[in-house]
Design a binder for these strands. Structure first.
Lengths: 337, 337
DNA sequence: ACTGGCACTCCGTACTTTCGAGTGCCAATT
DNA sequence: AATTGGCACTCGAAAGTACGGAGTGCCAGT
């Protein structure tokens, strides 16, 4: 139903609109792209494209702009991911290599991605449930208070305060610490509940209450809500764009963890890059934005997601290239640390 | 040189301008406040106030708006900090009490302050150099790699990777760990360099390289640049205001750690609240904003600062009240954990 | 199937007009 | 000397008006 030329016209409209931010008319189109036909022909094609819902006019007698459906078709069939320049790749590499701990890796990544795409970048910390235990530490911090410190293979360090409701000896703590570490070393965090199930039986009767308190805090730490940590950067880039919805709505959405989580979406099923365009977005305040997201991880193990948010009118090929490249490099960095 | 009535006029101008966001004229002033004189008199007073630089007109034949100097006088001499309502105080208390670790305390605080003031809130993590060591942990994470974990009395947990350039036995690590903890327990982080000075001499000759590596990383962690950690929230509130400088400039400034640090300024000398108005601000992009900041800490020990950033046209008494109240509550929460 | 031509639409811009809040100044009053 | 009512003046914001031009849809011709 859409012949090759019509697709070509759609692509041209998307590209021109993205670069000029102005509705594109038939005349301008034949001037800038050598389509080999006259503007009248293009007008006919445009009429069809509009009827099918791929483009729209802001008002009568104005040029056309792509609809969400138009962008969708463009992303799916009319564009290819644009690889970064080698200069950009080198910049990424040197910038990320300077990181000295996980916080720093994530912080640098999100700033880097924001700068690279000139949009808002979002990076999720490596998921706890998909990591494994590297070390568990119990530190007494007051007479009736312990600090549980959990270190994962991805370098995440989680800490929780434990109230012990009674004095606890150094020995008990040391014993429990050793037991926890033998139980859990290398254990996937998803399996922790199973792995510790029989632990209370192994401790001396006197230490059972302590063990119970520690375990309850440990298990709570793995509960979904606390599981996820996510950051963003580049909000300043939003100010340059003007949204149909107010800027305020978008900023508000960005400040909510849950919204950010939904934004990146589920970890991708097949291809690594996910693009969500305008109204495809679940959240009210983000109906005029698009998201390009990707999984990142070490080897074949997916750890979490990262991505970019911008106006639907965005340069998809370049953005997708940047997101893919950064996701890969982060995986490499994490693998090496 | 400024009699009481003129001061009263200035106060009225500030209050009206803050609440209406429109230049205030002599007529409107006598209507809204019962000053007991006519508008012509007020006009004369205004002329004097303008000559002295406390107010200005956006253009001839418009009302007056306060200058930075006018706000300064208002804050210093014409206003009193407005305490929060008891409902607000209760809300703060319950909200902050739910926090389960330092990250959570800081995160909740910054969101709370943003919501309370409807402006941008900034909170600095408890300064490392002003904290003391609660525990040091060494965790082997790979054959030639250790993780140094430092836990402070304020609940901050810092981690650094250490390359050992050689296999290291469990025993060596255990030994060094014990040594470190006896050396450093309760030691102020400022004194760490002194406290560990003679440590290398205490370890077995074989472990000297290991000790050196660990110490170098430990000392580096305390270097100023890494010392400070700072977060903000409520950027969405900026969108509601319009700045003379572009919103973009302000957002950009906010995303830079160093700028945020400068923003809060040095820890206050005398009174607990610091107000910096417009051009009193050191940073280019923040010349049209004001900052209200305060120290917070446990007991008489100052740990760090927090504050609020908004347009110069802000409700200073309320904002100051909120900042002061939140700073106090955070201190309490930290004391209890 | 494509094209050139043509009448039509309507946005954006610029120009003008009007309206009114606000000012500064002055002479009169207390 | 301080205050006041009066008055001419200023200037921005809002509303109205005019116009140019990019863009469209349609149709007859190739």
């Amino acid at each position: 139903m859409l012949d090759d030329r019509k697709l070509e016209v759609l692509r041209a409209i998307v590209e021109d609109y993205v670069s000029t931010n102005e509705p594109v008319g038939s005349k301008a189109l034949v001037d800038r792209h050598n389509l080999g036909v006259s503007s009248a022909t293009i007008r006919n094609d445009m009429a069809v494209l509009e009827e099918q819902g791929y483009i729209a006019q802001p008002h009568t007698s104005a040029g056309r702009i792509p609809t969400d459906k138009g962008y969708r078709l463009f992303v799916d069939r009319l564009s290819t991911v644009k690889p970064l320049s080698s200069a950009e790749r080198r910049a990424i590499e040197t910038f990320l290599n300077g990181a000295y701990d996980l916080d720093d890796v994530v912080g640098r990544t999100v700033r880097l991605l924001a700068q690279l795409t000139r949009q808002v970048a979002v990076v999720q910390y490596p998921s706890l449930t998909r990591s494994s235990v590297r070390h568990v530490e119990l530190v007494p911090v007051a007479s009736r208070r312990l600090l549980l410190v959990l270190i994962t293979n991805t370098g995440r360090v989680e800490q929780r305060v434990i109230e012990t409701y009674g004095e606890v000896s150094e020995e008990s703590i040391g014993h429990l610490r050793a037991l926890l570490n033998t139980c859990l070393d290398g254990c996937g965090l998803g399996e922790v509940p199973v792995a510790v199930a029989d632990l209370p039986e192994k401790v001396a009767a006197d230490d059972r209450p302590l063990a119970a308190a520690v375990l309850s805090v440990l298990l709570e730490t793995l509960v979904e809500k606390h599981d996820e940590k996510i950051v963003f950067a580049g909000a300043a880039n939003l100010a340059a764009v003007d949204f149909s919805r107010s800027l305020r709505d978008v900023l508000e959405a960005l400040e909510e963890q849950v919204v950010l989580m939904r934004l990146l979406g589920e970890t991708g099923d097949s291809s690594s890059l996910t693009v969500r365009i305008g109204t495809e977005n679940p959240d009210e305040g983000l109906r005029s934005t698009s998201v390009v997201a990707a999984d990142y991880g070490v080897g074949d193990q997916t750890l979490a997601r990262l991505g970019v948010l911008g106006p639907t009118r965005m340069d998809y090929p370049s953005t997708m290239g940047a997101v893919r490249a950064v996701a890969r490099y982060v995986g490499q960095i994490l693998a090496g640390s």
